[in-house]
């Protein structure tokens, strides 16, 4: 008996539609979030992550409403992120049926916010999302820093040290996205994934770059991630969740089938 590695389809939602872009440009429409979530639930996805990529204040009510609809029909864990800045934002999403919330820029801006959130709602529902980019050259020791605003804004903060600090502040999980790989379909950045997985005592979700099923296996085995997140390979029907799980099981990864 062992804990299964999780496969998490991710819904990037912009103004009420699931979208997926290459490096956050060239965005393609992938459907209605409630229908997409139901499809992954039926396929045996282990969780669903919903990232509101517009996340302007006008859109917040739409998100809460969509989360409510998904949560009343999908009986697997649901993580919601995008534009979360206050304890009240978290409370509303949890009340709408989210099981976890993912905090990104607000943690960078105000690290103590993660502490306050974990104290109030419990570490189990606080995910800290980290967008990392490699900043070291080919000749030097690898180093990754966190970037905000969809990968456009550097912060100078070391990604591995930041992940450890966030876990220490009460993050129950780390969602690690490589901004170098996101949307490229070239596979996860296994270096940063392994560095973060080894540095934190909490589970790590690898994200950014999945183009085929071997990438999922690599993220777990070489990247040492506890879960793998992918979007476009599932959204556009290239692969189904069961196909991914069978492939992973055949290569020695414990999965829920």
């Amino acid at each position: 008996m062992a804990l299964a590695k999780r496969i998490i389809p991710c819904l990037d939602v912009d103004r009420g539609r699931v979208v997926k872009g290459v490096q956050f440009v060239d965005i393609r429409d992938a459907g209605d979030p409630v229908e997409v979530a139901q499809r992954y639930n039926e396929q045996g996805a282990d969780e669903i992550t919903f990232l509101d990529i517009t996340a302007s204040h006008e859109e917040r009510d739409t998100t809460v409403h969509t989360v409510e609809k998904i949560a009343s029909e999908v009986f697997i864990p649901l993580t919601v992120g995008g534009g979360i800045r206050t304890l009240e934002d978290i409370r509303r999403l949890l009340n709408a049926g989210a099981d976890k919330v993912s905090i990104n820029s607000a943690a960078v801006k105000e690290p103590e916010f993660v502490k306050a959130a974990a104290d109030r709602f419990g570490a189990q529902c606080i995910v800290v999302a980290i967008d990392a980019k490699q900043v070291s050259g080919p000749e030097s020791a690898p180093r990754w820093e966190i970037f905000t605003h969809g990968g456009r804004q550097p912060t100078g903060i070391d990604a591995v040290a930041w992940a450890a600090r966030m876990a220490d502040y009460g993050a129950g999980e780390i969602l690690l996205t490589s901004m170098d790989r996101d949307g490229t379909k070239n596979g996860f950045d296994l270096g940063v994934t392994r560095a973060v997985s080894d540095a934190v005592p909490v589970p790590v979700i690898a994200s950014g770059g999945v183009g085929n099923l071997q990438h999922l296996v690599d993220g777990i085995i070489d990247g040492r991630a506890d879960a793998v997140l992918a979007a476009s390979i599932f959204h556009f029907g290239e692969y189904s969740v069961p196909q991914a799980k069978h492939y992973m099981r055949e290569r020695g990864v414990e999965v829920r089938l």
């Binding site: 008996m1 804990l3 999780r6 790590v204």
Partner: peptide, 21 residues
């Protein structure tokens, strides 16, 4: 517990999070 290790020496993550038998 803190700093749990699996048989292969990797971190055994806490919380115990996910699907188990």
């Amino acid at each position: 517990g803190r700093d749990l290790r699996a048989a292969d020496g990797r971190h055994l993550k806490v919380p115990h999070m996910g699907w188990n038998q």
